[in-house]
Design a protein around this nucleic acid. Structure first.
Lengths: 187, 187
DNA sequence: ATTATCATGTAAAAGGTTACATGATTTG
DNA sequence: CAAATCATGTAACCTTTTACATGATAAT
């Protein structure tokens, strides 16, 4: 799927690999994260498949870079994927839940410490959606009024990030309270 | 991580690969799903590492099967993982959000149809958490009163599934309403 | 008759992470 | 003086999915 994320961004304008990574981190990172190394590998594949073209650009003060442009075949591939309805739900992998599920033999203070650390990380993430991410979308809306549908959808995905974090924090509070009340330490 | 899920289940009692898959589907599947083929491969690796032992059992009417038992070394490995605090959040991959983010050029009725199908799937999943999953945990609580901490944690992970689906449905409703109100079809 | 369940696995491919390598410029 | 940013990538490894293969019994 990273393939389609790349095609999706390059449909707006040509970009460098490094730049794509930054664009992803500022927008889709909360539901589709990828490492730079994987982005470079996928760019290579897409170029071999003629979905992209690249051109090396020299810079005086900074390293050379490769500008990738989407081809007609790339646009067709992307549009075809967008038009295919999803029939199944994506599945989550959550290591905290996995550890919690098997954590019955741990002691109360350790498990609570873990949950409180997660609580902090989720609050930090929530703040990012409510400030930075919101501002990026707001700025796009103002500078590109022709992207009305696009920014509406971007805002929807941001809102999901916000709602997810709010839900997670609420669940952590519930879970912490439950453990505080009902946990029996073994001796 | 599947490795720890397997060790986690086998700490309760010895099981067959096929049985492990069923146990996972009835409990951790919503935050850690794996295919049978991967479970068999991981069992093989764990046995080679002496974290598990296996014994072939013959059955008259059904195929032979392999019963896996956890070793001391396996228990130590699991407990060590459980005691190591998590420092980062797991990241989600959600194909619906990815498609939505790049779906600005689609037409209104197609995008709404997609969202309504997802709505149905999430409602179905929610019902499973509220009935089947809840009953499985309830039954364990009654038949194994010594698993008090365990069932408390299982219920917490079930509750996360429930809250997640409720949140997702709410977000879908919001998003559908927004698109109905604000989407401009291109000609 | 066909599909589902029980029960095991292998093989190939795809997807993803971690570590390594280079090297200049800018910021703290 | 160290760390971050810009910019590219490779190689090894690990994880996960998909497809194939076998074969019996039970249910629809």
């Amino acid at each position: 799927m990273l393939k389609y994320a790349i095609l999706g961004f390059l449909k707006y304008r040509p970009m460098f690999g490094y730049e794509l990574k930054q664009a992803m981190d500022g927008s889709i990172q909360h539901f589709w994260n990828s490492k730079l190394s994987q982005i470079y590998a996928t760019l290579k594949t897409l170029e071999a498949e003629k979905k992209l073209l690249s051109k090396i650009e020299n810079q005086d003060d900074k390293p050379d870079r490769k500008r990738y442009t989407i081809t007609q075949s790339g646009i067709a591939d992307l549009d075809n994927w967008l038009a295919t309805p999803l029939m199944t739900l994506s599945q989550t992998k959550d290591e905290l839940l996995l550890k919690l599920f098997f954590g019955g033999s741990l002691n109360k203070s350790d498990i609570l410490m873990d949950l409180r650390l997660m609580h902090k990380l989720h609050e930090d993430k929530l703040k990012v959606y409510q400030t930075t991410t919101k501002e990026i979308i707001q700025a796009s809306r103002e500078s590109h009024p022709e992207w009305k549908n696009d920014t509406l959808l971007w805002e929807s995905t941001r809102r999901m990030g916000e709602m997810y974090e709010e839900m997670y924090i609420q669940w952590l509070n519930e879970t912490i309270q439950n453990i505080e009340k009902k946990w029996k330490n073994k001796k």
